[in-house]
């Protein structure tokens, strides 16, 4: 059998399902995340809340820093490159990263084109606010999708809107007759074959995680109940009072997202949550980057 890279890359995302992917900035944080039950870590120099605070141009992290995190843990290590920055992605592939996040959290390098991800062996996850964006990213070769949310805010409202919108658009496609799919593809600005797949299967052809503003076990459970297959937690953990305890509680909340008694216990005594900012108080909407 010929090794099909795209299938293998979609399948790695399948193995991450039901798990929590945590942003980390140091090997020490990576070890805390792994011990708390992270199914993967996202290595980056600054977490989104600090990127937001610092302003300026935000770029791919130092490969040496990412290597330090790869050496510290045995779980998959992801890293971010700028939207459209082919060379940053090539560098991340060269250090054998397990997943590249072509991310709106960093400053976009290209205002029109995303990376042609089919040219890479290494897998890509991309953010999406709606079904059209998700299917365009999949057409470009993304093998995992996440909601964009509004990163670094600790405010889950955008992740909720994106997930709800995507799910309702999927239900709408499922309910259509076959001859309506051509027009639907036109409206979604997405390839007909992918629209047809969603119509027939009632889901994306790749795993779909929630991301952006998840800060508590309740936030994580909310996203799972809305149809997320797993959760990214960015600033929410290491910007809080007790990262190890909060991380472990969020991991458990994702596994047992329907058990309300357990969720109540998990939400107790977690210390201070990240302060956060409301979506309407911020000037820079990262979710609007790359459509």
């Amino acid at each position: 059998m010929e090794t099909n890279r795209q299938d293998l890359n979609r399948q790695l995302a399948q193995m991450l399902k039901g798990g929590v992917i945590m942003d980390v900035t140091t090997p020490e944080q990576a070890r805390i995340a792994e011990a708390a039950g992270a199914c993967a870590v996202m290595a980056l120099e600054r977490i989104p809340a600090d990127i937001r605070a610092a302003g300026g141009v935000s770029r791919m992290s130092d490969p040496k820093m990412i290597r330090g995190i790869q050496d510290a843990v045995s779980i998959p290590v992801m890293a971010k490159c700028r939207i459209g920055h082919i060379a940053e992605a090539q560098i991340l592939e060269a250090i054998e990263i397990d997943y590249i996040d072509e991310s709106e959290v960093l400053s976009p390098a290209d205002n029109i084109y995303h990376i042609d991800k089919t040219k890479f062996k290494v897998p890509f996850v991309c953010g999406a606010k709606n079904l059209g964006e998700a299917l365009r990213r999949i057409a470009e070769g993304a093998t995992m999708i996440r909601t964009k949310g509004e990163p670094g805010t600790g405010d889950v409202v955008q992740a909720v809107s994106h997930m709800r919108l995507m799910q309702s658009e999927i239900r709408r496609l499922v309910s259509m007759s076959e001859d309506e799919l051509y027009e639907a593809a036109k409206q979604l600005q997405a390839p007909y074959e992918l629209v047809r797949y969603v119509h027939e299967n009632g889901k994306l052809p790749v795993v779909n995680f929630a991301a952006g503003g998840v800060a508590t076990p309740a936030d994580a459970a909310l996203m799972m109940q809305l149809g997320a297959e797993g959760v990214f937690v960015g600033s929410g953990i290491f910007k809080s009072g007790n990262p190890a305890k909060r991380a472990a509680a969020i991991v458990q909340a994702v596994t047992n997202y329907k058990d309300t008694k357990l969720l109540a216990e998990l939400s107790e005594d977690l210390g201070e949550a990240m302060v956060g900012i409301n979506e309407h108080e911020i000037e820079l909407l990262m979710a609007e980057r790359g459509k």
Binding site: M15, L16, G19, C39, P76, A248, V251, T255
Partner: peptide
């Protein structure tokens, strides 16, 4: 099933 064994072991213990 497949997944991350470190996560599964931790949850097996905690639960």
């Amino acid at each position: 099933p497949g997944g991350e064994s470190t996560v599964q072991m931790r949850l097996l213990r905690e639960l």
